[in-house]
């Protein structure tokens, strides 16, 4: 299973490191990563591989959400298929 993680909010030092640390602990592999800043809004996207994940999806989602709240950014994790199905035939 692959999932897209998006982080939207104000940029700050160590943001990617903090998110990546959670993923590393959960044994989630990052396949691709990109980031941009649009009008002061920081946007990071990661494509991740959850096949070897050592916790369930709901728990990872909760950890990421909590971390987002701590850092003052919006963190989402969504299975890749939702984007595929909406934008690809």
């Amino acid at each position: 299973m692959r999932a897209v993680i998006t982080v939207i909010g104000c940029d700050k030092v160590g943001l990617i490191a903090e998110i990546s640390a959670i993923l590393a602990k959960a044994n989630v592999n990052i396949l691709d990563i990109s980031q941009t800043t649009m009008q002061d809004l920081f946007t990071m996207m990661m494509l991740t591989d959850l096949d070897k994940m050592n916790m369930d999806f709901a728990m990872l989602k909760e950890q990421l959400t909590l971390k987002g709240q701590e850092l003052g950014v919006d963190v989402r994790i969504q299975r890749e298929e939702i984007f595929q199905s909406m934008h690809r035939i």
């Binding site: 897209v4 946007t43 494509l47 989402r76 939702i82 984007f83 934008h87 690809r88």
Partner: peptide
């Protein structure tokens, strides 16, 4: 791979 614009559109 889906691009950033598409991901952001879905989220919006």
């Amino acid at each position: 791979m889906i691009n950033q614009k598409e991901i952001l559109e879905t989220i919006r």
